[in-house]
Design a binder for these strands. Structure first.
Length: 585
DNA sequence: TGAAACTACG
């Protein structure tokens, strides 16, 4: 077999994913020229095997073969991402030495490579500017994508407009990059204009463009527009499904699960991250555990976003032990991992653990932000750690130079007010550098009710009704404060003004997941015999717990409890055997 | 004669 034939075969094998066979053939070749080396190198690169690609390049240089413009653009592509900054400069030097540094494919790959580091965007722009009229479509799109990658979406979009003014034809690449930038800044208006252009130029037959459009509509809260695009695209790929599922996981988690059942592709790490977050929002522990199993079987557990989603899911499902297990096993953690775990402790009432974890986070060298402090203070609030919470508020300002935002002030007001320090809470509201909103006053109102403080309750309620006169729950809250304080005249007046608004307080619905089915119920719900039975059993159990508490009974003996026949525990009380749709991961 | 290269979407 000639060298050329072997090279053709190598790239053909690689394009079908048979990299190992290609490599076996490559190793058999007695002589390899630049083209053969380059074919093997780009074969690895196009299959995502960056390290191997880079290794081939090193061996090639060591073997004395001179890299040309093909080789350099391939190897630059191979080391995109985190390792790019370290390799871009030396490879640039090689390109200059070989005299190929101004060839379009090489420059474009260099622009992309430099722009894969935030600090490199300036160098990328220098290369881009030096190109002058030598720019190709890829030069523009690489530069625009570089800006969008590092929070300079607006600069990217301006460059996009310049590109069009310069007469560069709108391509599918440029279109999906610009749409992605629109998504990042949630510019629905420009996104819609681009959509129109896509239709005009028939670019909407391209799947990457459609996927970007779906993502843009999902992020801009236009889930129905996203869905109609999704439905109008019969040739979907995994990214299409993942984008739609991720969109639903933000606004309609049940639909996200439904879509998972409908997809025929194998779910991957992205899919399962969105599904985990949908389970978190539904507080569906059984489903979440099933997804966790699927994650473990596929060895996705090392993925950072996946780990963060699992910690969040277990926390929101109330399974703090599992949350901590996942957290502890995570190979690398970011700010979000720590925040999720602290929030998890907080929402489950483990204030001290939240505080302790915060110290570990600082010890690990992670800088806290507003969200961390918000969760930390609210953890303290729920656990009654008032002084600790207050100290965190102060250290946020003094030690970490963070200016508390409205939400943080709200949580500190909540912290003080719940602890009965209503006066201090009010002083803090007066000191706030923001106009207090209904949530801040709402915290004070709730605490006034908790501590039977009529004066403070009246003030908070007045402030809230100035901001939002239509929210019924505040009138009800105020009325019950008056009732508790025996202010019957004002109680009657408040109830009357309620009638004028003419709506009822929305019932707080609780739910429980039993055997893959969700059951919802309200307080004192008598609509279903099962709920009534559950109520009866709960009553028996709490009576029993009281007995244990007072030492009357030592431990729970199910035989002693007058549990209705056929039920082995309260959890199964509501269970109805049912055939629900299942999916084997 | 024929082989190898840049930019996009979760």
């Amino acid at each position: 077999m000639s060298q050329k034939h072997a090279t053709t075969l190598i790239s053909s094998l690689c394009s079908r994913g048979a990299v190992c066979h290609a490599r076996a053939l490559f190793d058999e070749m007695p002589d390899r020229d630049v083209v053969a080396w380059t074919a093997m190198l780009s074969g690895y690169a196009s299959n995502g095997l960056r390290r191997e690609a880079l290794d081939v390049f090193r061996r090639m240089v060591a073997a004395g073969a001179a890299p040309n413009e093909y080789t350099l653009s391939s190897v630059l592509t191979a080391c995109r991402g985190p390792c790019a900054p370290a390799t871009a400069m030396p490879l640039h030097a090689v390109a200059v030495r070989r005299g190929v540094d101004r060839m379009p494919y090489v420059v474009n790959a260099l622009i992309d490579s430099y722009a894969s580091l935030a600090e490199g965007v300036v160098d990328a722009r220098r290369l881009f500017d030096a190109l002058g009229s030598g720019r190709t479509a890829a030069s523009w799109t690489s530069m625009i994508a570089g800006y969008a990658r590092w929070g300079k979406e607006r600069t990217g979009l301006r460059l996009f407009k310049t590109m069009l003014k310069d007469g560069v034809e709108l391509s599918t690449f440029a279109c999906s990059i610009a749409l992605h930038a629109c998504t990042l800044v949630m510019d629905l208006c420009l996104g819609q204009q681009l959509h129109l252009q896509c239709i005009k130029k028939a670019l909407d037959v391209n799947l990457a463009v459609v996927n970007s459009l779906i993502d843009m509509y999902c992020t801009c809260a236009r889930i129905l527009d996203a869905r109609s695009l999704f439905d109008g695209t019969p040739d979907r790929n995994l990214i299409t499904w993942n984008t739609m599922i991720a969109g639903y996981s933000q606004c309609d988690p049940l639909m996200a699960l439904q879509l998972l059942l409908e997809m025929n592709d194998e779910p991957n790490c992205f899919t399962l991250t969105s599904i985990t977050s949908a389970c978190a929002d539904l507080a569906a522990l059984r489903c979440g555990k099933q997804v966790h199993g699927a994650v473990l079987r596929r060895s996705y557990s090392d993925d950072l976003q996946m780990g963060n989603a699992l910690v969040d899911m277990y926390s929101k499902c109330g399974s703090i032990t599992n949350a901590k297990n996942v957290f502890d096993r995570m190979g690398c953690k970011d700010k979000f991992s720590w925040t999720s775990m602290i929030a998890g402790y907080g929402m489950n009432g483990y204030g001290n653990e939240a505080v302790q974890l915060f110290s570990s986070m600082i010890h690990a060298g992670v800088h806290p932000d507003h969200v961390v402090f918000l969760n930390l203070i609210s953890s303290c609030s729920h656990a009654g750690l008032v002084d600790e919470g207050w100290n965190f508020f102060r250290s946020m300002i003094n030690e970490y130079n963070l200016q508390p935002n409205k939400e943080v002030y709200g949580s500190v007001v909540n912290l003080l007010a719940r602890a009965g320090r209503l006066r201090e809470a009010l002083d803090l509201i007066d000191m706030m550098p923001f106009a207090p909103d209904e949530y801040v006053w709402g915290a004070l109102l709730g605490a006034s009710k908790m501590h039977n403080n009529v004066e403070m309750g009246r003030l908070a309620a007045r402030k809230i009704t100035e901001i939002n006169p239509d929210d019924v729950k505040n009138y009800i809250m105020l009325a019950s404060i008056y009732a508790a304080g025996s202010k019957w005249g004002e109680y009657a007046f408040t109830r009357r003004s309620l009638r004028g608004i003419g709506s009822r307080k929305e019932a707080g619905i609780s739910w429980i997941e039993v055997m893959d089915k969700m059951y919802s119920f309200t307080a004192a719900d008598s609509s279903s015999p099962q709920v009534c039975l559950a109520d009866e059993v709960l009553h028996i159990l709490s009576q029993h717990m009281d007995d244990v508490g007072t030492g009357t009974v030592k431990s729970i003996d199910w035989e002693d409890l007058a549990i209705p026949q056929g039920f082995c525990g309260p959890v199964y009380l509501l269970a109805t055997p049912s055939t629900t749709s299942t999916k084997n991961f």
